[in-house]
């Protein structure tokens, strides 16, 4: 676990304060469920698979198996196109991981992108464009990663349609 007791120096009154530094690590498997399983399978075939509510017909991407409004099953799979619209975006100067906050070398472009035919949007990276060129309503298409593994990281990001 790599835990140790270390001393931290309190400069103000030159007194050593002992603190315990450790890392909590818990291995865990998340069973993704049939809906996300299908979604990952779609990624493997470079496809977006969403789900449709059996009652109101709302299409979810990322998919989920229940509609919040109807409290009904949303287990009908729908194949969606690879293009969408930027509903919202932000350009971040920081990389935030589970471990650290670090100043980013290049600004990170992040978009709330609604795939055509879906009623919900997902938060994904935007790539191959300049932060200054981003706008809401911009048409984008998915860029697949080089090695497809049936994993969320198969989505390298979204780029403007037409190189933008």
């Amino acid at each position: 676990m790599g835990e140790k007791i270390i001393s931290k120096i309190n400069l103000e009154d030159e007194q050593d304060i002992y603190v315990k530094r450790g890392m909590v690590r818990a291995e865990f498997d998340f069973w993704v469920g049939i809906v996300m399983d299908k979604f990952y399978e779609g990624l493997q075939n470079k496809q977006f698979i969403g789900t449709k509510c059996s009652k109101c017909g709302k299409v979810f991407l990322p998919p989920r198996n229940r509609c919040a409004d109807c409290f009904a099953k949303a287990e009908e799979f729908v194949e969606l196109p690879q293009t969408g619209v930027v509903k919202n975006f932000t350009v971040s100067n920081y990389n935030v991981t589970e471990r650290r906050v670090r100043k980013a070398k290049e600004p990170n472009m992040v978009g709330l992108i609604q795939i055509d035919g879906a009623d919900t949007a997902m938060v994904v990276p935007i790539i191959n464009t300049n932060p200054d060129d981003l706008k809401e309503g911009m048409k984008v298409k998915v860029v697949w990663a080089k090695n497809i593994k049936g994993h969320p990281n198969d989505i390298a990001g979204f780029e403007p349609v037409g190189g933008g």
Binding site: T90, V91, V96, E98, V110, V123, V124, P125, P152
Partner: peptide, 23 residues
């Protein structure tokens, strides 16, 4: 959500605060 958002690693208090403010 560990099955999608956590792996995409683009959602954090800064980016969500930014998008909320833009909206």
């Amino acid at each position: 959500d560990p099955t999608f958002d956590r792996t995409m690693s683009v959602i954090n208090p800064y980016t969500t605060g930014g998008m909320q403010m833009r909206a």
